[in-house]
């Protein structure tokens, strides 16, 4: 029978493993808007990790900065620069 602590560690491992391909895709993606969505997936996974580690104060700040303000700033920059990366 699984204890609750084992389940917490299993969920920590799953969310940490899922944040790795999201970060890699956000780095190598040519479409900057898709990179923004992958970055939002990574911050959502980190939200679950911070919640499981019993840090609700960090969750309150991290969601506002990482999903709210960072995506707002990046979309404002994408409007100026253009959506597709070219070099």
């Amino acid at each position: 029978m699984l204890e609750l602590a084992d389940l917490i560690f299993i969920m920590l491992g799953i969310s940490a493993l899922l944040s790795v391909p999201a970060t890699i895709l956000a780095v190598i993606s040519r479409d900057l808007l898709k990179a923004l969505i992958f970055s939002a997936l990574q911050s959502t996974m980190y939200t679950l990790m911070f919640f499981l580690l019993m840090a609700p104060d960090i969750v309150l700040v991290y969601i506002a900065v990482s999903i709210g303000f960072m995506s707002l700033l990046i979309i404002l920059i994408i409007k100026k620069v253009g959506r597709y990366e070219r070099y």
Partner: peptide, 29 residues
């Protein structure tokens, strides 16, 4: 509820509101 720690509830309200904000940003773009 599972953690027996009801103080953790405001994280859920904040997550709901900011996910909606991300949706509106992309739609406006």
């Amino acid at each position: 509820i599972l953690f027996r720690n009801p103080i953790l509830i405001p994280c859920s309200i904040v997550l709901t509101l900011w996910i909606y904000a991300l949706d509106i940003y992309v739609a406006k773009y």
